[in-house]
Every structure is written in C-alpha cells, then in structure tokens.
Design a protein around this nucleic acid. Structure first.
Length: 566
RNA sequence: CGGGGUGUAGCUCAGUAUGGUUAGAGUACCUGGUUUGGGACCAGGGGGCCGAAGGUUCGAGUCCUUUCACCCCGACCA
C-alpha cells in the first residue's frame, strides 16, 4: 500500500476521555473511530489486524477439528424465552420488533442459536462429538461501556460450542480447546495465563479464563510463585497461610467489651491477632421471588469475597443491608456472632471449621465471647467465602500466591446440559434413550484482543505490533520525496517486497523526515526501512520498532536482510 | 441503575461568574514560496445554526426550563 493513497488518519492528540494506552494509540494512529458510546468503526489498519487474528484462530480451530459456521446476528426472542435468559440478561439484550411486531434480540452470545441449529439434526450418539464455532459481531447493551475496544457494546467474538454424548468426552474436548487457545495466544505473541474462574450464573462444572497480563486489566488474578496455578480472585483457593500467629490463652467466657465493635478494636482490646477474631458481614441475598438476610462469617484478617458468597447462597444477587434492617431482626451490629443466634441464616468460611481460641460477638450489646471452639458448630453451613490474600499458600504446591492484573480475552466453560435440557435438544444413546447433549462453550474476544496486544506492547511513542498481529510488516520510508534516487530505490524495494508477499507500506508522502518517523512509530510497524541521506554512500537503515534501534545495510543487501528479520 | 462532569471549527480547548461590534487560539486542511534525518518556517485562505427545543430580553455562546448525547466514579458485566 502506498501511504499517500492510504486512509490512515493519524492525529497528534488523543480523544480527551481516553485513558488506556490501547484506546489512545488505536485512536491516534487511525485504527478506530468512535461512533457512539461503546460503538467503534474499524478503519483499514484495524481491519487488517482483526483479519490476522481471525486467521490464526481459524487455523487453530481447523487443526482442532472444529468447523466454522455463521449464525444470524438477529435472533428471535422466543429462543431466549425458552432458555430463560431473556430475564437473566435483562437490559443487556437489545430488543426490537420487526414490521410484523415479532420480538427479536441482537445476539450477545449464541448458545441458544447454536443449540437450535443442532437440535433435531444431530439425533444419534453416532454423530457426536461435534464442535462448531463462528467469529461474529456481538451486541451487549452494557451499562457502562469504556476503555475503547476493551469494553464496547458491539464487539467481535469467536464463540464455539461443542456437543457430546457424555461428560468424559466433553472434558476431553475442553482440554483440547484449552490447548488450542493456548497456541493461539502464543502465536499472537502475548504473555498470558490460563486461570480458574467463577462459572457464575451460567453454571456448569468448571470454567477457565484466558488472561492477558497487563497492569490495566480489569480483573485481579492470583498466581502461584512456583507452579502453574492461577485463578481469578473471584474463584481463587488457598491451602492455608504462611504463618499462624500464636493463639491467645483464655477460658471460654462472655467478656464485657464496651463500644468495641470493629475487628481493629478487638485486636487492640484483647491484644490478639485478627486471625483469632471473627468478622460478620451481613448481606441481603436476593432470589427470584424473595430475599433474606444472610450473615457471612470470616476470620478478622480475611475479607469476604462477594462472588463466592453469592455462589454459596445460590442467590441471584447479594446487596448491602442497613443497621436498621439488622436490628429489626434482633441483631446487634458490632456484636454479631454465630453462637446462640437463630435470627438469620449464616454461612461460615471453611477456614473457620473447628477453629479454636476464637473471639466473636455474643449477640448482646457490649459483649463478646472469648476462647470459642468452633467445633461446637460442626453442623453449621461452611463454604469457601473468604478472599485469598497475597502471601497465602498455593492450593497445589508450597508456593505463595501473589496478585496481578489481567485482561480477560477468553473464557471456556464446561456447560453440561444446561442449555440442551432447557431447549430440549436431545439425541438417542446406545440404549435408544433420549439424552440432552453435554456441551462445552469456548469464547474469545477478537476485538478485545486487538486492544490487549497494545496494552501489552506499547511505549510513549505508540503501538508496537507483534509480528503476528501487525497490519503491515515493513514500512519503507522515503526520507525526501524530491530526491529521485531515494524514490527509485524505494519503489524498487517496494515492488520486490510485494512480489515476495511481504505486507509492505511505502511512505511516499511529501512530508519531512521527523513527521514520517513519528507517524511510523505511532502506528507501530515492526520494521521501517529508511531511505535517506546515507543513500549517497549506498546505505539504507532498518529501524526496529520494538528496540528503536537501527542498523545500516547496503542498499543491495537490504532485501535479503529484511526477509531474514521478518 | 445511583452520584458527578462536559457539549463552542475535523481534533484539543479558551470565552459563559457580571448578556452587548463581525465568536477566538493551537492544531489539522487548501494555495504559493523557502525547507528536507525527529511532528519545520513565511505569506495568504476556507471552515461554526456555540448539542437540540422552548422561554426571558431591545439584544443570548453567556440567564431560565425541558431534552438529547458523550465522559468519569460506583453498581453491573454468559
């Protein structure tokens, strides 16, 4: 492509509201253009990057034996009613009616559509397994789109769905997809981690997220210092803590604790570590039809992990409660404990099972119990509801956990029969018995990957594309367009590289050197061949974007040298 | 969905407290010239329904009302 003919509107200034590197540089370098909140148009450079990513996904999916399909973007609302997700998704579903007043939904994900396509077509276990995917625009009417391509309302996603006759086969495919996704991200040149994730409302027996490591990521993940273990903090587990503080010595007793309400107060009052205190976090668990107050107990040194708490209750949502609501139930904020208290349902963190020497509220104004032995509550409901802390021990080895930020670019689920059962998508097994398909689902955010590449690969000058994702591999810069010799060499090299199927840009604009260099760095071509002053000595320079170093090579060798480099 | 902010040239923004010539700057764009290794310089030029609607006033970018859009914090996010 000739730069003089290309539509690449670069700008000196970023949109005032952009804060993320990917948003700033993709806007400034002329890749994307915002149309409305959460809606972006892809300009030629972005389109090329997207195609690169899609090609790699297609190649790896083909290797893994998955077939590409394309489902319609507009989906009938009836399917969403069948699965029950029309309520669950709520306002995120963009709904509208056609001229016949039929209700439709813009597809935010395509489980229902895929199941609908397969049901009654795949009817025997002999036709299984099958793995179908598409790369398609999705629409979710997010409450708050932000960060450019990172969280748009309209975005491109690769979504795949596999159908199996048994759980074991789904597990096998899940592992195969995890491996394929790993290969894709490696090929794209990304530093990533596959982590255990919360399966959330979608259910199923397990899910993993693919996290591109970047400080700007919206998710916090816990990773082990020694082994491969990594997990979203929403789902992270631990085996214990590094050092258990010395236990306080006391007899079981009810102790007067005037105005001692917080964990910090307790620590100071009794001179004990927060480890031996019990924290009560009261929340209202909201179910489909009603709601109730639930008391969550964790150690004073821990914090409640709300996603875990929600899962432990099976609630659709958990929300804060006021002191008044607690008092109405007969609970005394600041002095709530699990003993001798029957006002509300409680969930106790599993780390408190059989805990000794604990201090907890006595459910009486100004009193706490000391030296509580939790084994008296062995019948209570225990669940993992505490957030892991940095420094806790890895659940799989003796390493320690630390936190890092990640961008979720993929999420794979073991769905099981959730959707096939709801949509009555069944096959006949060996015994001629109807069974719902066992399914897996595998998502990857293509447009988000574009942003993730830049989040991980940029500097103060702009984008630094990886070789697998760059819109053009080589940029030939003719330093001074009025120098006929420079133009001749540039054109010759341009033709030669094109003939060799190298993706090449020829910067033939009538601009000054500095302008064109800044532009090239902003866009982020991996290599720029500078044809300029040194041509008198028969030399040109190859500038590498990543290192910002340039080497001089003879004009006769530059072609073979650049072929070696790319 | 709660709280806050901003809408003026393609872009980044002044101007609005206290209403008053023809609405500004930088940048980008067009013409001509000088330049040509890190976003050059000189001269000239085009470009605005001051987000929209209504109101107050002799007079509104500026005051009032309504509305729309966009952004930020939070909640939400298969």
């Amino acid at each position: 492509m000739r730069r003089s003919r290309a539509f690449i509107p670069t700008t000196k200034e970023a949109p005032s509201d952009a804060s993320l590197a990917s948003h700033i540089y993709l806007s400034r370098a002329g890749f994307i253009s915002q149309v409305a909140s959460g809606l972006y148009s892809y300009m030629p450079l972005a389109k090329r990057v997207i195609k690169k990513i899609e090609n790699i996904i297609n190649e790896e999916m083909a290797k893994a034996g998955a077939e590409e399909v394309e489902l319609s973007f507009v989906t009938p609302a009836t399917l969403w009613q069948e699965s029950g997700r029309i309520e669950k998704f709520g306002k995120e579903l963009l709904r509208f009616r056609d001229r016949k007043e039929n209700l439709f939904v813009l597809g935010p994900t395509h489980e229902e559509m895929m199941v609908d396509m397969v049901r009654n077509r795949i009817t025997s276990y002999k036709q299984l397994p099958i793995n179908l995917y598409q790369i398609k625009t999705k629409f979710r009417d997010e409450a708050r789109p932000r960060f450019g391509l990172m969280r748009g309302r309209e975005f491109i996603m690769k979504d795949g769905y596999s159908f199996h006759s048994c759980v074991a086969d789904m597990d096998r495919e899940f592992d195969a997809m995890e491996a394929a996704y790993k290969t894709i991200l490696t090929r794209l040149g990304l530093d990533f981690r596959i982590v255990e994730a919360d399966s959330g409302a979608i259910g199923g027996s397990g899910s993993k997220e693919l996290m591109v490591l970047a400080g700007s990521g919206e998710d916090t993940i816990a990773v082990c210092s020694k082994c491969e273990y990594g997990a979203n903090v929403e789902a992270a587990k631990r085996s214990g803590r590094a050092a258990i503080p010395e236990a306080p010595v006391a007899e079981f007793n009810k102790f007067k604790t005037p105005n001692i309400k917080s964990i910090e107060d307790l620590e100071n009052f009794f001179k004990v570590d927060g480890y031996y205190t019990m924290k009560c976090v009261a929340k209202r668990a909201v179910y489909e039809d009603d709601s109730e107050i639930v008391l969550f107990f964790v150690r004073g040194c821990d914090t409640l992990q709300e996603v875990k708490a929600q899962n432990a209750t099976g609630a659709l949502d958990i929300v804060d409660v006021s002191e008044e609501e607690l008092r109405e139930l007969g609970l005394i904020p600041g002095f709530i404990g699990p003993l001798e208290q029957g006002c509300a349902k409680h969930v106790i963190d599993s780390d408190l099972r059989d805990a000794k020497s604990m201090i907890c509220g006595a459910n009486e104004e100004e009193y706490h119990f000391v030296n509580v032995d939790m084994s008296v509550m062995s019948e209570a409901y225990y669940a993992d509801i505490a957030a892991v802390n940095e420094g806790d021990s890895c659940p799989h080895c003796n390493g320690t956990l630390s936190f890092t930020k990640g961008i979720e670019v993929g999420h794979i689920f073991k769905l099981g029969t959730t959707y096939s059962a709801a949509l009555k998508a069944e096959f006949l097994d060996e015994n001629g018995k109807a069974q719902p398909f066992v399914m897996g689902t595998y998502g990857m955010g293509v447009s988000r990957l574009v942003a993730a590449v830049i989040e991980q690969h940029h500097d103060e000058q702009g984008c630094i594309w990886t070789k697998a994702t760059t819109p053009y591999m080589v940029n030939i810069m003719i330093s001074n367009i009025k120098e006929v010799s420079q133009v001749e060499i540039g054109e010759e090299l341009y033709a030669k590289l094109q003939a060799a199927h190298v993706e090449v840009m020829l910067d033939d604009r009538k601009e000054r050197f500095g302008f064109k260099m800044n532009d090239a760095e902003l866009i982020g071509f991996p290599y720029t061949i500078i044809i300029g002053k040194e041509l008198e000595n028969g030399l040109v320079q190859i500038f590498e974007r990543k290192t910002k170093e340039s080497i001089s090579v003879s004009k006769d060798d530059v072609f073979s040298k650049i072929i070696d480099l790319i």
